[in-house]
């Protein structure tokens, strides 16, 4: 009994610690500026308008850029990863093992290690300071993972289902489109969410590639604001709150697939 109580207590502590920054974020976001120094936790006056203030400032711009960046990355990623995963899962593609190993190898790299070279590559292609350049790099860095995940899902679909469709007169393409994809839908959705969140959260490449405020996503926009001379912490926290809303929503949406997603590339 005591052990049980202790375990539940430990769980509560764990949840509190993991959630603490977000509580601080919400409470700070709702404070008037003068209370930041005097009221460490609850505000005395709740300023709900703080939540709207960033929308009157640059938040719409940063938000739009993050949205474009993440959507663009997700679409391009699917466009490249779906055929590749199909080739690895369901076609007699030569060198499958080699391709898979090459894909894992790319996971060793973090863009920050080669950021200087990436920057030069992008600038020689005139892709610096544009969302297109970021989309390409983000796609490349999430592609291996997406292919891996999709391959696992596509391979799990029994051969008979696809064969039955083809016997019914479907071409390979339409069998893929009408039968295989719907069956593997959870996998596709999980992949979409993972890639989207990854692109939404990316920081170092965006920080390096972008200079125009016009192009900055939330991560860089808020970082710039936080490192400016005297940030207004309450408004910064309000903006941060908005910045994490979409990813949290998506996260809650796929939470039950999270484990298989995160470990699909790893455990196999």
């Amino acid at each position: 009994m005591l052990a049980l109580v202790l375990r539940r207590l430990a769980l509560l502590v764990l949840i509190a610690v993991m959630g603490a920054p977000f509580i601080v974020m919400c409470l700070t976001a709702l404070k008037p500026s003068i209370e930041i120094a005097t009221h460490p936790l609850l505000p005395a006056t709740w300023v709900w308008d703080n939540l709207l203030a960033p929308w009157r400032d640059k938040l719409p711009l940063f938000f739009r850029n993050s949205l474009l960046l993440a959507t663009g990355t997700t679409l391009l990623n699917l466009l490249l990863a779906l055929p590749a995963a199909y080739a690895l899962a369901r076609l007699p593609t030569p060198g499958k093992k080699l391709w898979r190993q090459a894909l894992i190898a790319t996971q060793m790299f973090s863009p920050v290690v080669v950021v200087v070279s990436l920057y030069r590559l992008a600038s020689s292609a005139r892709l610096v300071d544009s969302l297109a350049g970021l989309i390409l790099v983000n796609t490349a860095y999430s592609l291996a993972f997406a292919i891996w995940l999709l391959t696992a899902y596509l391979a799990a679909v029994p051969d008979e289902i696809e064969e039955a469709a083809m016997v019914d007169g479907c071409s390979r393409l339409s069998a893929f489109w009408r039968v295989l994809l719907p069956v593997a839908r959870p996998g596709v959705v999980t992949t979409i969410v993972f890639v989207f969140i990854g692109a939404w959260n990316e920081f170092v490449i965006a920080l390096t590639f972008l200079s125009s405020e016009q192009n900055k996503p939330l991560t860089v926009g808020l970082h710039d604001y936080a490192s400016a001379y005297s940030p207004q912490w309450n408004l910064l926290m309000a903006a941060a709150l908005w910045a994490i809303v979409p990813v949290i929503a998506l996260f809650a949406f796929i939470e039950k697939h999270l484990a298989e997603g995160l470990t699909a590339g790893a455990v196999k």
Binding site: P83, A84, A87, L91, T93, F109, V114, L118, A144
Partner: peptide
């Protein structure tokens, strides 16, 4: 034919990975 289709399906992804990974590594 299917093997060829397979390679063709892989090609775009591999091309992007080759550019974004190999070039910077060599250049670094």
């Amino acid at each position: 034919r299917e093997a060829r289709v397979g390679l063709l399906c892989l090609a775009p992804a591999v091309a992007l990975l080759a550019i974004v990974f190999l070039y910077p590594i060599v250049s670094t």
